[in-house]
Design a binder for these strands. Structure first.
Length: 274
DNA sequence: AAGCCGTGGAT
DNA sequence: TATCCACGGCT
C-alpha cells in the first residue's frame, strides 16, 4: 500500500507540479510525500517562483523526505527551465533528461502524466514485472524497449499507473501473489524457480549499513540546520560523531553539495537563490 | 560503473 | 531490538 502511486495530483497535470511530485516520489513513499508536496507547491508554484525562493526555505519543506540534493536539483531545474525554456517545462525527452535530477524514469513520467504523451515509464516495479513475464534478466535498454512495445497508444497515463501499482502489490519483490495473478497465463516465471527480477537491471542494489554511516551523520546535520544555524565547534556533536575530522569532512561535503554554507564560525542552510 | 545519497517500513 | 530493504539519479 505505501508504495502505491495513485494520487490526487494526477488530476492536476500542471507539468511543473508533476515534475516536483515525480522527483519527490523517486525515493520517498507516497504517504510521506503527500503533505510536503502541497506545501512545496504553495511555496514554489511555478519555475519562476521557485528560482526566487531561498534554497533554505525549500529545504525546510523537504526535511524528512531524505536525499535533500533532490530539492536542490528541483531548484536548479527551475533555473534551466526559466533560462532556456521560457519558464515552461519542456515537452521532449532529451530536454527533460538534460534537467538536473531528471533521468529516464522521471522524464517519461512527466511526458505521460503531465502531457499525456506516449511514454512508457520503467521504475523498479515495471522492470520487475517485465523481467518476470519474459522469464529472464535484462539490461536497462532492453527493458525500456519492451516497455515501449507494450505501451497502448493514447493510454499512457492509465497504463503506467496500472503497471507500477501491479508491480507494487501483486507482482511485488518479496512475496509475489502468483496464485491469484491475473496475468499468470502470460508469465514465463509464475513464481517457480529462480526469480529473474533478482538479477535484472533496475532492481535495487544492496546498500551499506545505515547506522554509523556518512548518510546518517549528514541527515542529522540537515535536520538540525532546519531549526537554525550550528556553530562550527558543535558540528561533531550534532552529527553524533566522536571523530572531529570526519565531521569536518562531512559538513564540507554538504557545502560542496550546495546545501549548506559557512557564515563566520557557523553553518546554516544555503540561502542561495539560484 | 560500482558506490553513494536519507528515511521509514517490513521482517 | 536489530537488520534488511526500497527507491532513481549521479558520478
Amino acid at each position: 500500500m505505501p508504495r502505491l502511486r495513485e494520487f490526487p495530483w494526477r488530476a492536476t497535470r500542471d507539468p511543473w507540479h508533476v515534475l516536483i511530485s515525480e522527483v519527490m516520489l523517486q525515493q520517498t513513499n507516497v504517504g510521506r510525500v503527500r503533505p510536503r508536496f502541497e506545501r512545496f507547491v504553495a511555496l514554489a508554484p511555478t519555475p519562476a517562483a521557485c528560482v526566487d525562493v531561498a534554497l533554505a526555505d525549500l529545504l525546510v519543506e523537504w526535511q524528512g523526505m531524505g536525499y535533500p540534493r533532490r530539492c536542490r536539483n528541483i531548484q536548479d531545474a527551475a533555473r534551466v527551465i526559466v533560462e532556456r525554456h521560457g519558464g515552461e517545462v519542456p515537452r521532449d525527452l532529451d530536454s527533460l533528461m538534460a534537467l538536473p535530477g531528471i533521468g529516464p524514469y522521471t522524464a517519461r513520467a512527466i511526458l505521460a502524466f503531465a502531457f499525456g504523451d506516449d511514454a512508457a515509464v520503467v521504475d523498479t516495479n515495471v522492470a520487475r514485472v517485465i523481467s518476470r513475464v519474459e522469464g529472464r534478466a535484462m539490461k536497462p535498454r532492453e527493458t525500456q524497449a519492451l516497455a515501449d512495445e507494450m505501451l497502448p497508444r493514447g493510454l499512457s497515463r492509465d497504463w503506467n499507473q496500472v503497471v507500477m501499482d501491479f508491480g507494487a502489490t501483486v507482482c511485488n519483490a518479496r512475496s509475489p501473489r502468483c496464485s491469484s495473478c491475473p496475468i499468470a497465463r502470460l508469465c514465463s516465471w509464475c513464481g517457480e524457480g529462480a526469480d529473474p527480477a533478482r538479477t535484472t537491471a533496475f532492481t535495487s542494489r544492496p546498500q551499506g549499513r545505515f547506522e554509523g554511516s556518512d548518510r546518517q551523520a549528514r541527515g542529522r546535520m540537515m535536520k538540525r540546520l532546519t531549526e537554525g544555524s550550528v556553530q562550527a565547534t558543535r558540528v561533531a556533536e550534532v552529527m553524533g560523531l566522536d571523530d572531529g575530522d570526519r565531521a569536518e569532512r562531512l559538513v564540507e561535503s554538504l557545502v560542496a553539495d550546495g546545501l549548506v554554507e559557512r557564515v563566520g564560525r557557523a553553518y546554516r542552510l544555503s540561502e542561495k537563490r539560484r
